[in-house]
Write a protein that binds this DNA or RNA. Structure first.
Lengths: 207, 207
DNA sequence: GTCTATAGGAGGATAGAC
DNA sequence: GTCTATCCTCCTATAGAC
């Protein structure tokens, strides 16, 4: 596993970084489609096009492979948050990031969270890149949540932490998979539907 | 695996049925806490207190074990639906069943759905008890959904199938686990919070 | 760092006695 | 039907040559 050491990067190192990116991409897709336990290192190696032993030169274990994929998602999420216009309202930003994560999941690029206690959980918690990314994303989201609540666009009766967890949960909402499997709606329609149930709720609203 | 053949049941058969109930209960808890892939047949046998080979006399495979647990949940769900007062409004019934499934999940008795394509999916689909239970539950829920929409308590703009899937998704909502892990709220408060976000949504409502 | 080949072990399923 | 003991496949991880 390589780390970035300053601006000067040799051509050789760039090749290695590109390879690791390819590995992480394969891991992300396989994780999203099969889950951590069902994904095998042989599959990853075959998908990347290298030998399994070569994989273990880059990442010391299967758990580290998954952790790298999660860290990559966190990095992309942080970049997306930072790309949102500062002038936009907190509520618009929250809606934007939820829609973005749903699109990622529908595209098969969102690794599932380790809901159960497993060896993966420990690996994720011990991965500093993963945890730092999570902290940064959570901090930014929490700021928007509280701002949206004080300005009255987000239900102020809900604890901010509950709102944060609800937003995270939408990134791995099974409803997305159900609707995609039914093949009744396009990805855009699915995102729109789940956005509506998430923010407006199921109950009818007074017009 | 035993089937019920008429009203006359010998004492011996009752013992076997009780044992199978114990097996299913162990499987349900282990499934809920670890997931299908991470659960091992050795663990199930140890939890029930019998040898692994004995398990295979009751259920021919690990997939069948999980399918029996799912069928059991479906059966319990159907019984709960039938226990609801017929005079209650469709919307009240929908709220009640969602709260009931959340309580089940928080109690660690709700096996997770096989979101990814796996050997488990095929086993569940081939299990008639599981699929019949799912159909019955879905039919009853769909009826309430359409009734609630025509009477204006449920958002009529949402496709009924999307509402149905959303309700099912709440039974395995990761937000429940997140909130439980945070240990900031009691189980009742968690159910209340997620019920609110599910039906009322995150956005503030006009009072 | 990449490969082939293999060690090591976990776990699903079965044999055969009782 | 229950047990002990075992088979056998699959999978993570590593050894060692290039």
């Amino acid at each position: 596993m390589l780390t970035h050491n300053g601006p000067r990067v040799s051509f050789k190192v760039q090749l290695l970084q590109a390879r690791e990116e390819a590995i992480i991409q394969s891991v992300s897709h396989l994780l999203a489609s099969k889950g951590f336990e069902a994904m095998t290192v042989d599959e990853v190696a075959a998908d990347v096009g290298i030998a399994k032993a070569s994989l273990y030169k880059h990442f010391p274990s299967k758990e580290d492979l998954a952790a790298a994929a999660m860290a990559s998602v966190m990095h992309r999420a942080k970049a997306y948050l930072d790309s949102l216009p500062p002038a936009a309202s907190p509520m618009d930003n929250l809606r934007a990031v939820v829609a973005w994560t749903m699109g990622l999941k529908l595209a098969g690029e969102m690794p599932p969270l380790p809901s159960q206690n497993s060896s993966l959980r420990a690996a994720l918690i011990n991965n500093t890149a993963c945890m730092n990314g999570l902290s940064e994303v959570s901090d930014k989201l929490s700021g928007w949540i509280e701002a949206a609540q004080t300005q009255g666009s987000l239900n102020p009766k809900l604890p901010a932490i509950a709102v944060l967890y609800t937003l995270y949960a939408r990134a791995c909402d099974p409803a997305l998979e159900f609707l995609k499997m039914s093949e009744l709606h396009s990805d855009e329609e699915i995102v729109s539907l789940v956005m509506s149930t998430c923010f407006e709720g199921l109950s009818a609203r007074a017009t």
